[in-house]
């Protein structure tokens, strides 16, 4: 059966301008054989969801360092549902309090990979999540 490499869209949402972390992740995923679409800084949830649907990614990874996670992720999940793309795996990265991480998991964010997550663990997590989802 012909298969595609795992396809990931990485986005920075909100106003913080720190993209070193997300670039390290992009590089690690590339080196693990994944196609990584990087959309740059300061994206809105609407922009990110539109791009993720057009790119038909397996995983939408959103990195946040600005503390707006409880506004951004509910909006992203809602938009994905509206566009019929609720089979997309949403992963959060960055820095946030434990209680927010728990709340986001509850909401449907598949994994929260905080600032101390080793790159290999990120790779393994994405592979596991995509495998668990199955063919689409």
């Amino acid at each position: 059966m012909a298969t595609n490499p795992i396809r990931v869209l990485l986005a920075k949402v909100g106003l913080d301008g720190h993209d070193r972390g997300v670039k390290v992740v992009a590089r690690a995923l590339r080196d693990a054989g994944m196609d990584v679409i990087y959309t740059g800084l300061h994206r809105s949830p609407e922009e990110v969801v539109t791009a993720a649907v057009q790119e038909d990614v397996d995983v939408l990874g959103v990195s946040l360092l600005s503390g707006v996670q409880m506004t951004v992720f509910p909006r992203i999940l809602k938009l994905l549902k509206e566009r019929g793309a609720d089979d997309m795996i949403v992963v959060a990265g960055g820095v946030m309090p434990d209680e927010d991480a728990a709340a986001l998991r509850e909401m449907g964010v598949a994994a929260i990979l905080l600032q101390d997550t080793p790159p290999q663990e990120i790779v393994d997590t994405l592979r596991r999540l995509v495998e668990a989802r199955g063919e689409r």
């Binding site: 490499p5 992009a26 590089r27 995923l29 590339r30 080196d31 693990a32 054989g33 994944m34 196609d35 990584v36 679409i37 990087y38 959309t39 740059g40 791009a51």
Partner: peptide, 8 residues
């Protein structure tokens, strides 16, 4: 793998 950055 790849980094697809044209969207930026």
């Amino acid at each position: 793998g790849s980094i697809l950055g044209d969207r930026v």
